[in-house]
């Protein structure tokens, strides 16, 4: 059996003012995968296309080994998508929305639904229009999770949620992948949450993939470097090194330990070189900045 839940290969989508791709992304089965990138990087475009919203100009998307367009119905039965644009107000009350969505999915899990209603403090009688923003997000998550989908795709699910709700959401996502078969793909700007809860990360910027891999390995690979230089060497435009700022002779940079930047610095007059671990946020800021040069 295929060990990848989602395989995106050479995906390209052209818009008048923006091109996504060519993008390759691999989401392993059983993982929580975080898709990150600055606003406008193409995250939502990529996620929408997995679900057949917008037709790709070239490339392939395979979901659980199935072609996302040729096997569209099967894909949609087995994968669920939670988007910030979902609107359940037409059903009036929470209970009615649940009964409606439930009817479409043979695999609907009533016990899971009941547990989640309790955990998320939702009640069948609640009027959807009066729910807070966070409660509406929880409702759409509940509707997706209760289907027990093999793949759950979430676009910015934690935007506007308080810290407690965010933790609840991630606790549910960890539960969802507990059997090692189900997979979660999540796009978010909550980088400290993603660093803690995701197994894999993909970062896109300007429609291109900058990085992809195990979250821990990616974070381990980079260091924040601080050093002095008085010999006038310019450290700009060196592979494996992103200069973050400079105050006179003191330099701050992001250093890729998979490159030779470390020894190169030492042989080019950098002194008092010190390295510190990065957070995913440090990495994100540095890499987002680099491309802008």
């Amino acid at each position: 059996m295929n060990t990848n839940a989602i395989e995106i290969r050479k995906l390209v989508k052209n818009y008048p003012a923006f091109t996504l791709g060519p993008v390759d992304l691999t989401v392993p089965r059983g993982a929580i995968y975080g898709l990150i990138g600055p606003n406008g990087a193409g995250k939502t475009t990529a996620l929408d296309m997995i679900f057949g919203m917008g037709r790709n100009d070239s490339g392939t998307i395979r979901v659980l080994g199935l072609d996302h367009r040729a096997d569209e119905v099967a894909v949609k039965q087995r994968a669920a998508y939670v988007s910030p644009d979902l609107n359940f107000q037409v059903w009036g009350k929470v209970g009615k929305a649940i009964r409606f969505v439930r009817g479409f999915y043979p695999g609907w899990d009533d016990a899971c639904c009941t547990t989640l209603m309790h955990a998320f403090h939702l009640d069948s009688g609640d009027k959807i229009t009066t729910l807070s923003f966070g409660a509406k997000t929880k409702l759409s998550l509940l509707l997706a999770l209760s289907r027990r989908p093999e793949i759950l795709i979430l676009d910015e699910p934690t935007t506007g949620l308080d810290a407690i709700s965010k933790q609840q959401v991630f606790a549910e996502l960890l539960k969802a992948v507990e059997d090692g078969e189900r997979t979660v793909l999540i796009s978010s700007h909550g980088l400290s949450d993603l660093e803690r809860f995701t197994d894999h990360i993909g970062m896109i910027k300007n429609g291109k993939v900058l990085l992809e891999g195990r979250t821990d390995e990616i974070v381990d690979r980079f260091r924040l470097a601080e050093f002095f230089s008085t010999n006038g060497t310019t450290f700009l435009n060196r592979a494996g090194l992103v200069i973050l700022r400079r105050t006179e002779n003191r330099w701050h940079a992001l250093l890729d330990q998979n490159s030779d930047a470390h020894s190169w610095l030492q042989s080019h007059g950098a002194t008092d070189l010190s390295l510190t671990r990065v957070t995913l946020e440090d990495l994100f800021v540095a890499l987002a900045k680099e491309e802008d040069k």
């Binding site: 933790q167 991630f170 606790a171 539960k175 059997d179 803690r196 809860f197 197994d199």
Partner: peptide
């Protein structure tokens, strides 16, 4: 490790490692 990840609220990869 999947269960422990749930208990500790960290990624499965973290516990696995």
């Amino acid at each position: 490790f999947r269960q422990f990840a749930e208990d500790l609220l960290v990624s499965v990869i973290t516990v696995k490692r």
